[in-house]
């Protein structure tokens, strides 16, 4: 469990975090949302020991960050937004290097390669990888020490939908193996797809922390989400798509949408009434469009 109590961090006169308190449950995928400058990066930096808070207390798996950061770093890992590896080294050399630096076990090293489907790319120079492959290498490096906690800082920036889905699916698998994931992203549909709980930050303060289910349901909304089985025709229908397989519509247009799906042989998986989407909720609560 990650227990953050009343932490404050200022850079000069600017408060990056203002008396922030959060609790992240063990084995969950926790979404951290906020506009640019909300304090997400500062919080991740503090959790990884790169920056020290001015005041407040953080305990990670019962260890105090002020006194036990070295132990904490051994059980946690950050996947930075930047591709933080060496382009001139091969995939294998990169993984070897980061594994040796962390004194990683061979089994964990092998698992990181398998989970991220990098086995066939080990001898390839990192600079020649595709965007998705680079992202997978970036993630694999963070897994070689078999962390109990992983911080993902916008890990899917600039990659194709297929690679993005693969990464999101693998993150869901981490939860099943008991790993705690803290995930920041500007893509709300990603948060909706994988997170159990979400916190929204603004100007260094916590606006809300709740389960995803609570945030996007039981609200006075006439929005309906129609989830279908994957079809290449869907994109040509001119409908509002929340993701590759979710159509978002209003109650008044539902019949027309279903008719269109039938005409194009697109099979319906489920229909969710009274739903809102996280992006709309996020914009409502932050009153800001800069996401």
């Amino acid at each position: 469990m990650i227990d953050i109590q009343n932490i404050t961090k200022s850079y000069g006169s600017k408060k990056a975090l203002d008396n922030l308190s959060l609790t992240i449950q063990e084995g969950s995928i926790f979404g951290l949302l906020g506009v640019n400058g909300a304090g997400k990066t500062t919080l991740l930096s503090i959790l990884n020991g790169l920056v020290k808070q001015d005041s407040g207390e953080i305990r990670i798996s019962g260890l105090d960050t002020q006194t036990s950061m070295q132990e904490i770093n051994k059980i946690s890992s950050i996947i930075p937004q930047h591709l933080a590896f060496y382009d001139e080294l091969s995939v294998g050399e990169n993984l070897d290097f980061f594994a040796k630096v962390q004194d990683a076990k061979q089994d964990d090293y092998t698992k990181a390669i398998e989970v991220n489907s990098l086995k066939s790319l080990l001898t390839q120079r990192a600079s020649t990888l595709s965007g998705g492959q680079k992202r997978r290498l970036n993630i694999a490096i963070g897994l070689v020490n078999n962390p109990k906690i992983i911080y993902f800082d916008e890990p899917t920036v600039g990659i194709d939908p297929k690679s993005r889905n693969e990464i999101l699916d693998s993150i869901k698998e981490y939860r099943e193996s008991g790993i705690t994931v803290v995930y920041t992203s500007h893509y709300m549909n990603e948060i909706e797809k994988i997170c159990d709980e979400v916190a929204i930050l603004s100007h260094g303060k916590l606006l809300v922390q709740d389960s995803l289910e609570n945030l996007i349901s039981n609200r006075n909304s006439d929005t309906i989400n129609v989830e279908v089985f994957h079809s290449s025709k869907l994109i040509m229908l001119g409908l509002t798509l929340l993701s590759e397989t979710i159509i978002q519509t209003k109650e008044s247009q539902l019949v027309a949408v279903l008719k269109q799906c039938k005409e194009h042989n697109i099979a319906i998986k489920q229909i969710q009434y009274g739903a809102t989407d996280l992006e709309k909720y996020f914009l409502d609560i932050t009153g800001d469009c800069d996401v």
């Binding site: 770093n73 890992s77 950050i78 930047h82 591709l83 933080a84 060496y86 630096v101 490096i141």
Partner: peptide, 14 residues
């Protein structure tokens, strides 16, 4: 430094 590799290494207790 720019790619945050040093920060990553630092978070690995280097």
């Amino acid at each position: 430094r720019k790619q945050n590799t040093l920060a990553r290494l630092h978070s690995m207790n280097v």
